[in-house]
Design a protein around this nucleic acid. Structure first.
Length: 469
RNA sequence: GCUCCCAUCGUCUAGCGGCCUAGGACACCACCCUCUCAAGGUGGCGGCACGGGUUCAAAUCCCGUUGGGAGUGCCA
C-alpha cells in the first residue's frame, strides 16, 4: 500500500504573510486534501536576527483565515525548526563522518581573493583534501560529487544540473549552526515529507538538497517548483516594494474566498468559462502538471473585481455580518452612539452592489450616521453650478415639508418640480443629493431620505442652501 | 559573467498536431437599462515574440535568435 502523501509548507517568520506564500500554502493544502494526505506546517525560525514571534502568529492567523488550520484533520503542526537544531548538527556530523562533507577555514574574504586570482567565481574546493577537523570559525561544506544531478519536477519535468556548476556549499556555519539548505532537508526527512511544493526561486536549491537527501540515505521527495508571482515590472513580488501582505488585504475587506479563488487562478485555471468557482471545484480539479510555467502578475484590480463578485453573491444578512468590523469599533468613522444597525440593515442591499472592498462601505453610508454630512466641495460646486439649482431645491424643500415621507412620494415630489422646470430627474437630484449625502455619487437617494426623516432632511437642505450664499 | 527556468490579447488564462477565421475572465470603449453611482444586458477593441525546420496539416513538436525571470550568501 502506498504511503500517505505528506506535503509541507515551511515559511520563515520574518515579516507579514506574503500573498505568494499564501498561494504556495493553498497549493500544498489542496494537494493534501485531494490525496487524503497531510499538510505539515513548519515554521523555519532559525534566523534569530530576523525572527519575531509576532510573525509566527501572523502566519497562523493568515492561514486560518484561508481555511488552513488544525480544525481540519489534514493539518499537522506547527512545528518549529529551531526545536530540531540538535538533529541538524547531528546530521551534519554524520555527513562529515562518512566523508560527504569537510571542514574549511577560509573566510569569505579569502574565498573572494582566491576566486579573483583564479579568475573564477565562488568557492573552488580549496579545503576538500586538507583533512581539517571541526573548529572555531570553520564551516562544514558538502563535497559535491562529480557527474550530474537530475531533479524530477512535477511542473517542470526533469531538470538537469551539471554538478561542476555547483560549488561545495556550506552546511554548518563557522559558529556551528546549520544553514537552511541542511535544516530544511533534515526536517523534511524527519517529518516524513514526500512532496515538496514550493516557489520556483528554490529550483536552484533542489539539486543541492537532493544530494543531501541521498547522502543521508534517503530517496528525495517529489519536487514541484511553481512560478513566482510578479509585480507590474515583472519582478518577483517583494515585501519592500510591493503590497504583498495578506493581512493588509484582509484589513481592507478582501473576503477570504475571493482571495483564495483569485490566488488559484494565477498559474492555473479551473475548467469552464468562469474563473469564479467554488473552492470545492478547485480542490477537485487542481493538478500540478497543469500549472503554468511562467510567472504571473498579481493584479490587484482583478482581485478587487473577484471580491466585488463575492460580495454581491452573499446573502444580505451575511453581507451585513461581514461589514460589522468596519461599522462598529475603532475602524468606524462615526461615534458609536450615532450608528444605528437597523438603518444600516435597511440600506445594506443598496450598498452591496456598489463596493469592491468592505472598507468602502462606511463612506457610502456615513451620511446616515451623523448630524450633518461632510460636503465635498467639488461635488457641491458642480451640483449647484446650474442657475436652476437653488431655486428648484427650495421648491423641493417646501414640498418636503408636507408630503408623505416615503421613497415613492419623495421621488414624485422631485419629479414634479423637475417637470415644472423641464428637467430630468437625473439632473434634478444632483443638488439634493449633495445636500443630503455630501457627495455626487452614492446609493439611490430616496430610500435614505425616508430613513433620515423629515426634520433631518429639511435641516440638511437648509444648510446646503445657506452654504450656497 | 555563470547556472537554471520561461515565452498565447495590456493582464490572468483555455488550448497538449486537424474541432482555432485562437475561447473565457479582468481592464478599456460603445449602446441598452436607469434618480446619481453601481449592478445587469448587448456589442466592440485586442494576442500565438521572431526565424528556420518536421508534417498532408503547428499556437501546439524540434532547433536557433531575441526578450523576460530566478538563483548565484557562513538569508530562508
Amino acid at each position: 500500500m502506498a504511503q500517505t502523501p505528506r506535503y509541507r509548507f515551511a515559511p520563515s517568520p520574518t515579516g507579514y504573510f506574503h500573498v505568494g506564500g499564501a498561494r504556495t500554502a493553498l497549493y500544498n493544502w489542496i494537494l493534501a486534501l485531494q490525496s487524503n494526505g497531510v499538510f505539515v506546517l513548519r515554521i523555519e525560525d532559525t534566523d534569530d536576527s530576523r525572527n519575531n514571534p509576532q510573525w509566527t502568529q501572523g502566519i497562523l492567523d493568515a492561514l486560518a483565515w484561508l481555511g488552513i488550520d488544525n480544525k481540519d484533520s489534514h493539518f499537522e503542526g506547527p512545528f518549529f525548526q529551531s526545536a530540531n537544531a540538535a538533529l541538524h548538527v547531528e546530521s551534519a556530523e554524520k555527513l562529515f563522518a562518512q566523508g560527504a562533507a569537510y571542514y574549511c577555514d577560509l573566510s569569505s574574504e579569502d574565498i573572494q581573493k582566491r576566486a579573483k586570482e583564479l579568475g573564477k567565481q565562488g568557492y573552488d574546493g580549496y579545503s576538500r583534501d586538507r583533512g581539517l577537523g571541526p573548529g572555531e570559525g570553520r564551516v562544514l561544506r558538502f563535497r559535491v560529487p562529480e557527474g550530474a544531478t537530475i531533479v524530477q519536477d512535477q511542473v517542470r519535468g526533469s531538470v538537469e544540473f551539471d554538478n561542476s556548476t555547483i560549488e561545495d556549499f556550506v552546511l554548518l556555519r563557522g559558529n556551528g549552526s546549520p544553514v537552511f539548505l541542511l535544516a530544511n532537508v533534515v526536517d523534511d526527512i524527519t517529518q516524513g515529507i514526500t512532496h515538496v511544493v514550493r516557489a520556483e526561486e528554490h529550483l536552484p536549491n533542489a539539486p543541492k538538497q537532493q544530494m543531501i537527501w541521498r547522502a543521508l540515505g534517503h530517496e528525495p521527495p517529489n519536487w514541484a517548483h511553481v512560478p513566482v508571482l510578479v509585480n507590474e515590472q515583472r519582478k518577483k513580488l517583494s515585501k519592500r516594494r510591493d503590497k504583498v501582505a495578506v493581512e493588509q488585504y484582509r484589513e481592507e475587506g478582501i473576503l477570504s474566498p475571493a482571495m483564495k479563488n483569485y490566488l488559484m487562478t494565477l498559474g492555473w485555471a479551473p475548467t469552464g468559462d468562469s474563473e469564479i468557482v467554488p473552492f470545492e471545484k478547485i480542490t477537485a480539479e487542481f493538478d500540478l502538471s497543469s500549472v503554468n510555467h511562467s510567472p504571473a502578475f498579481f493584479d490587484i484590480v482583478k482581485l478587487h473585481s473577484f471580491n466585488a463578485d463575492y460580495i454581491r453573491a452573499m446573502p444580505v444578512d451575511e453581507f451585513i455580518r461581514e461589514c460589522e468590523p468596519w461599522l462598529v469599533g475603532a475602524k468606524a468613522p462615526w461615534q458609536a452612539q450615532d450608528y444605528d444597525a437597523k438603518v444600516f440593515a435597511e440600506i445594506a442591499p443598496l450598498v452591496q452592489t456598489r463596493v469592491q472592498l468592505l472598507q468602502d462601505v462606511p463612506s457610502m453610508v456615513d451620511f446616515l450616521f451623523c448630524d450633518l454630512p461632510t460636503i465635498d466641495d467639488a461635488a457641491f460646486a458642480k451640483a449647484f453650478a446650474p442657475e436652476w439649482a437653488s431655486a428648484t431645491l427650495i421648491e423641493i424643500r417646501d414640498a418636503f415639508k408636507t408630503c408623505e415621507f416615503t421613497p415613492d412620494a419623495l421621488k414624485a415630489v422631485v419629479e414634479a418640480v423637475g417637470e415644472k422646470h423641464s428637467l430630468k430627474l437625473g439632473k434634478m437630484q444632483a443638488p439634493l443629493r449633495v445636500a443630503i449625502t455630501g457627495r455626487s455619487v452614492g446609493p439611490p437617494l430616496f430610500e435614505p431620505i425616508a430613513m433620515l426623516g423629515r426634520d433631518a432632511t429639511l435641516k440638511r437642505i437648509d444648510v446646503a442652501l445657506a452654504k450656497k450664499v
